[in-house]
């Protein structure tokens, strides 16, 4: 349509989308503003948007010192990164085998992968818990990481991508003297970089935000991931102190939201992948 929409329509479009955007952004804005306010401005029955007194330093210092927030963030990073590395190192070889090698049982294996794609993690949380209990891993990094070390979604995604790599490339690598493991990691993986990045974003976002599983297996704050730490902060007696609480929430969402704003397209791709499987 080359026809330019009328001015009225363009105004209407922005008006509607802008009000929608305001609702979308409102919790974020309110979170930020509250994290900058002193308690007496928060607990007031007057509607004030902008803080009268800036309480930035106090609230954020409070958030970082009252609870070991930095440790929680570090836990979050350790857990998500380890999960991602495990998932890649297990998924990539099998994805290569499923896409490019001929072996007995391949069809069965792929059918199993497709079946496992249907299983929501909550549905197997009871046996997982029993397994962790059996292994003596409850309340540890192992419990947070081990059940997610296998990602059938990652296998599926990488396999789909590897299917598009021409066989000739693998033949060339074999003739050039690459070992099969070198083919997997040095030839196949570099060609699949876009898929790997999308999968990485998907995996890291999912596990950074995960609450259900850490809630089940963790007791001691030593291993708390950011969401768990945040909820515990709120549940504390002092947790009704909204300023520091909002400051903590801001700190928890900042890494991902910041990364998202820097690389929007990749993030949107990566996360909508989960729906595309």
């Amino acid at each position: 349509m080359n026809r330019r929409p009328s001015l009225l329509f363009r105004l209407f479009r922005h008006l509607v989308l802008m009000s929608g955007a305001m609702i979308m952004l409102m919790p974020f804005i309110w979170m930020l503003l509250t994290s900058l306010k002193p308690p007496d401005e928060i607990f007031t029955s007057e509607l004030t948007l902008w803080p009268q007194h800036w309480y930035f330093v106090e609230n954020y210092t409070e958030a970082l010192t009252r609870i070991p927030l930095m440790k929680f963030l570090l836990n979050g990073i350790v857990v998500t990164v380890t999960i991602f590395l495990c998932q890649v190192s297990i998924a990539v070889p099998v994805a290569y085998a499923l896409a490019k090698l001929r072996f007995k049982g391949k069809k069965t294996l792929f059918a199993a992968v497709l079946f496992c794609l249907l299983i929501p993690p909550q549905a197997v949380s009871i046996p997982w818990y029993l397994l962790m209990y059996q292994f003596g891993w409850l309340d540890s990094y192992m419990a947070l990481i081990a059940p997610f070390s296998i990602s059938v979604f990652g296998i599926f995604l990488m396999r789909q991508f590897f299917m598009t790599v021409p066989n000739d490339l693998i033949y060339a690598a074999r003739i050039d003297g690459f070992s099969e493991l070198a083919i997997v990691w040095k030839v196949m993986l570099p060609t699949a970089m876009p898929a790997l990045v999308s999968f990485g974003i998907f995996s890291i976002v999912a596990h950074w935000n995960d609450y259900f599983w850490p809630l089940i297996v963790l007791n001691s704050p030593d291993y708390y991931t950011p969401p768990l730490g945040l909820v515990n902060f709120r549940n504390d007696d002092t947790g009704n102190d909204y300023g520091p609480l909002m400051a903590a929430a801001t700190i928890v969402i900042t890494p991902l939201v910041g990364a998202f704003l820097l690389a929007q397209k990749r993030f949107i791709e990566g996360i909508t992948f989960s729906g595309m499987k």
Binding site: V252, I253, V257
Partner: peptide, 8 residues
């Protein structure tokens, strides 16, 4: 969609 649902 991106932001940690627990925090939000």
């Amino acid at each position: 969609v991106m932001a940690t649902l627990i925090a939000m």
